[in-house]
């Protein structure tokens, strides 16, 4: 009898854990990609270059993201990879930056600032208001 109780309780706990896992890996995040000027902690990053942006291996938007523009990507799950490929006059320059980032389940909508990312700042990602 007691054994059954233990098995049942642990099964329920297991299911709850499964639920949490599903929550984390199935969570969809809206990622706004800003190629705009940004000032963080007194440092200003200015948008100068256009980039082709790849999130988790998929290209966002059909064309490159010009300075001053914004695009949107939807990602699912906690950890992701973003790649910027610089474009000049419609041609890739070959320069590319790859960056990994993590999102918590609370972050439904985040903004990634491209100039900050390109400049190597760690605070390129922040929550949208």
């Amino acid at each position: 009898m007691k054994k059954k109780l233990i098995i049942r309780t642990s099964l329920i706990v297991l299911l709850i854990i499964l639920g949490i896992i599903l929550f984390v890996i199935g969570k969809q995040h809206k990622v706004l990609l800003d190629n705009r000027d940004l000032t963080i902690d007194g440092v200003t990053y200015t948008a100068e270059a256009a980039y082709e942006i790849w999130v988790d291996g998929e290209k966002v938007g059909r064309t490159a993201l010009n300075p001053g523009r914004r695009n949107v990507a939807y990602v699912v799950g906690p950890s992701h990879e973003i790649e910027l490929r610089e474009v000049k006059n419609g041609k890739p320059t070959g320069d590319s930056i790859v960056k990994k980032f993590r999102l918590s389940v609370k972050q439904s909508e985040v903004i990634i600032n491209i100039p900050a990312l390109a400049a190597g700042s760690d605070s390129f990602l922040y929550e949208a208001d």
């Binding site: 639920g19 599903l22 969570k27 969809q28 995040h29």
Partner: peptide, 19 residues
């Protein structure tokens, strides 16, 4: 509920079933 929580894809379906 999963729509509100924005859980998508197969995990979303499974979570909906679980709930």
């Amino acid at each position: 509920l999963i729509t509100d929580w924005q859980i998508v894809g197969v995990p979303g379906i499974l979570l909906a079933m679980l709930i």
